[in-house]
Amino acid sequence: MGFNFLPIFTFISLTLVAGHAAVSPEAYWNMVLQNTPMPRTVKNLLPSEGIVVPGRGLEPCNLGGPRDHDYPWDLYYYISYTGNVYEQPVDYGSTFFLEEDIKQGTKMKLNVSVITQTNGVTFLPRQVAQMIPFSSNKFLEILNRCLIKPNSVEAEIIKEAIKCCERSSFQGEQKCCATSLESMIDFCTSMFGKNIQAFSTELEKLQEYRISGFKKIGRGGRDDPVVCHKLNYPYAVFYCHIIRSTETYMLSLEGADGTKAKGAVVCHKNTSAWNPKHLAFQILKVKPGTVPICHALRQDNIVWLPN
């Protein structure tokens, strides 16, 4: 799918480069989060030169790949857990599991794989992102800037991403859609302050893994994480939200072929409001509100917690 973003950003990019007006996303991270190591997920989405360059990182308009019902799967069930019930993916792996399964030796096939190459999709500097509309009432303008036809599959994907961001928060949720790394950092620091940590799942391929070690992160149930889910969009946009009564783990994993990996896992302690026909209950054969339900996060998700 080749859609050229050059007409959209040439003037903006040249102005920023010439005037040195933009702080790169990486520079902003280093300035605000001096003691926070950057996860691989974030590194993979940084512009190669630290700033938008005309024609680099913005073309083609890459909206291909698995749609997962228009949302990343782990975000999708958050949004729909009190609504409709949908079929599970064909190869869902260990999408959901019990907290008691987080122990050394447990084997699971994690459904967390995504395309590791970003295909040119990167973070935009905040100054650039703020100049681009991101709302339903500007939908046609967005399509025109992206040179996308209104009735195309790409247009539908963009519409669904914006719809996801504009929906109302559900009970206990605080959320924002971050159209830049800087805005993501600002949202997370507004929750936790600047002394924070960031984690993501890191593995090379989908296969069976054995848990070789695990660690609960956060302060033993006193901190609910902010989880940021990457949306399918022409540039890096993340849906970030905090959900109450959630525990977070980092798993050390060993693949069937001996490769090492890391898995970020969240466990929802209170599922009493979830749809009784939710996929998690079907897989685990449990009822709402009875036991914590856990799932691993995809590689393009980021978990934030205070130190």
Rank of each mutant, 00 (worst) to 15 (best):
R222G: 01
I158T: 09
K109R: 14
Y239F: 14
E254I: 15
I157P: 04
A161K: 04
R56A: 04
R219N: 11
E173C: 03
V85L: 03
F9M: 13
H229E: 07
S252N: 13
F5T: 06
I12M: 15
F9W: 14
P54C: 04
R67D: 15
P150I: 10
F139I: 06
T189P: 05
D224N: 14
I148R: 08
H278C: 00
Y86N: 07
T41A: 12
P54G: 04
I142C: 08
E26K: 13
D101K: 12
S190K: 11
A27C: 10
W304F: 15
I243M: 12
I185K: 12
L181G: 06
F3D: 05
D91I: 11
H20A: 08
K109H: 02
G83T: 08
P292D: 07
D91H: 12
Y239E: 09
Y233M: 11
Y233P: 01
H20Y: 06
N35E: 12
C240H: 05
S13Y: 05
L206Q: 11
G220Y: 08
S169K: 12
A27K: 10
N4R: 10
G255A: 15
Q117P: 08
M131E: 09
S180L: 06
G258R: 09
T248S: 15
N4W: 06
P125C: 07
T41N: 05
Y78V: 13
Q88R: 12
L124Q: 10
G213Y: 04
V121H: 05
C240E: 04
P89I: 11
Y86A: 07
G55H: 03
S48G: 14
L45E: 08
G218V: 02
G221D: 00
R126H: 14
K103Q: 11
P54N: 06
R244N: 15
P37K: 08
I79D: 04
R67Y: 13
R67I: 15
Q104S: 08
V42K: 03
G221P: 02
V227T: 13
Q34F: 03
N301I: 02
I157C: 03
F170Q: 15
G255L: 10
Q127Y: 02
V121T: 14
K216G: 04
Q130T: 12
F3M: 07
T271M: 00
C177Y: 04
H69T: 07
E156W: 09
L45K: 10
R56V: 10
R40W: 04
R167W: 02
G193H: 10
S48W: 09
S168W: 02
